[in-house]
Structure formats: C-alpha cells, structure tokens
C-alpha cells in the first residue's frame, strides 16, 4: 500500500478525489490531507506519504512553493500537481521541478487513474530495486548527546517564526536522519518534535492574544500564516478558539 496525501484548499476537491478514485484497486491509501502548504509541512513528518497530490493554487503557500520545499526534503516523495487550465502556463514554467505529472482539473477518473497506475508501476520498480540491493536504510547516525538536543531546542526557539521549518528540515540542518532525531528528541524531552515546535508557537501566540493582537497578525508572527490551520492548532492547544481566548483575557 502506498501512502497518499492530498493537499488542496478546496475541501470538496479533496473529498471528491477520495471517493471517486478506487484507491484500493491501485493499492494506495489516502492517509492524510492538508488545506494548505503550511499545514502540509507541519504534518507531513507524521503522515509520511509516498505520494503527494498538490493543487497548484492555494493561499499562503502555493503548490509550486510547497513542491520546491518538499522535493528537497523528501527526495523519494512522488508529487502530482493539479492545475486548472488557467494556471497551466504557470505550472509549465515550473517544469524544472521534480514532479511526476501535471494533471488538469477538474479530474477525469479514467485519466487520473491511468496516471496513478503509471506512478504505482514506477514506485513498484523503485522498491523492487531497493529490496534487491538489500535494506540499507539504517543510517549511521552520530550519537546525539543532551547538549545537541539543547542546541536543537534553542534553534527551534529562535526559528519557529519560519513557517517552513519542520522535523526533517531541522534534522537535515543538524545532520541527522529525521527518524533518529524524532526518537531521540522524544527520549530527551518527552515530547514530539512537532509538539514542541507548536508549543513554542502557541506560547508566543498566547502572549500576543493577551496583548489583543489580531489573529492574522499573530498567525504570521508565529510562523503559521495559514489562519485556518493556526486556529485549529490554537484550539487544540488552549481548548479555546482564538477569539474566545482574546475575549476571556479581556474579562480578567
């Protein structure tokens, strides 16, 4: 089963894709979806997709920008770009990107299935190759001591405003594999990497909410410019929506 992640700001587009394609027949599974490039970067390390289907026109971070970031961090990720005819010329200008295919919207099942089938064959061949060579995934990570973890924490505290950082980017920054960093980070701090990053951002957001800042200002400031995703994170962290939180703070 290949893991598929759908990134599209239109929820109906994501839904339609999920229901109209017979994923099971393709030996694929839609394991995650994101409403923006920002959200995708934040969750992609958890979702761990083999295939990303990315809409080209999205707010905050469009499909092209996302692809640029993702193709560097996840060289094995297969990306399919979805585009309406309007953006086609624009998309074509980005052919240098390592993208498996550009597909026209609205999707036509026969077309789309055919493309996915081709992708599956390609992935099959690639994994067969990997398997034939033997499992060489074990990355000889240098031992990570506590001071390194501290350094990483400091790095996060200094850089959480950068909306593009995530586990993989930091791991690459410090020269570890993301799985090792993730494991060690949890061992040392008792928290997930992404939880820690979000905590940093939310603490700052709470401060700003206390100062009565508008949500879009805060979300920008803390590195989650996608206000919808920011709202989701904020509610999950504080148990209240941003506006409720601001109102509650005022009462005190």
């Amino acid at each position: 089963m290949y893991r598929v992640m759908i990134i599209d700001d239109e929820i109906s587009a994501r839904n339609l894709m999920k229901v109209s394609i017979d994923w099971r027949a393709l030996e694929m599974d839609v394991v995650g979806e994101a409403g923006s490039g920002i959200e995708a970067i934040n969750i992609i390390d958890d979702v761990k997709p083999d295939i990303a289907i990315v809409d080209i026109s999205m707010p905050f971070m469009n499909g092209i920008e996302f692809t640029e970031v993702a193709s560097k961090r996840y060289p094995d990720l297969a990306i399919i770009i979805m585009t309406a005819m309007d953006d086609f010329e624009y998309a074509r200008r980005c052919v240098s990107l390592p993208v498996f295919e550009y597909m026209l919207k609205p999707i036509v099942r026969s077309e789309f299935t055919a493309t996915l089938l081709r992708l599956k064959e390609k992935l099959d061949r690639k994994f067969a190759e990997v398997r034939r060579r033997g499992i060489t995934e074990t990355h000889d990570d240098a031992a990570m001591d506590k001071s390194t973890i501290d350094q990483i924490r400091e790095y996060i505290e200094n850089n959480y405003r950068d909306s593009k950082i995530n586990l993989t980017s930091v791991a690459q920054q410090f020269g570890f594999s993301s799985s090792y960093l993730s494991r060690r980070f949890k061992q040392e701090t008792g928290k997930n990497f992404i939880e820690y990053l979000t905590e940093c951002r939310m603490e700052r957001a709470i401060l700003m909410a206390g100062e009565n800042a508008k949500m879009f200002c805060t979300s920008n400031e803390v590195g989650i410019p996608d206000t919808a995703y920011f709202g989701k994170c904020f509610k999950k962290y504080t148990g209240m929506s941003y506006s409720e939180f601001v109102a509650a703070k005022k009462k005190q």
């Binding site: 239109e10 109906s12 587009a13 839904n15 339609l16 229901v19 109209s20 026109s57 309406a84 005819m85 309007d86 919207k105 609205p106």
Partner: peptide, 25 residues
C-alpha cells in the same frame, strides 16, 4: 471563471458520489 466553475463541478460531483448517483457524476 473556470475556477468557480470547476470548484462548483467538484462540489456537485462529490455530492452526487455521496448520494451514489454515479450517472450524475
């Protein structure tokens, strides 16, 4: 506006799918 048209088509398509109206879809 193609975007509007396409998005609408997708939304309606999803509704048709949900309702099991394959012909409509």
């Amino acid at each position: 506006k193609p975007h509007f048209l396409y998005n609408s088509l997708e939304t309606i398509s999803y509704m048709a799918c949900e309702a099991g109206a394959d012909k409509v879809y």
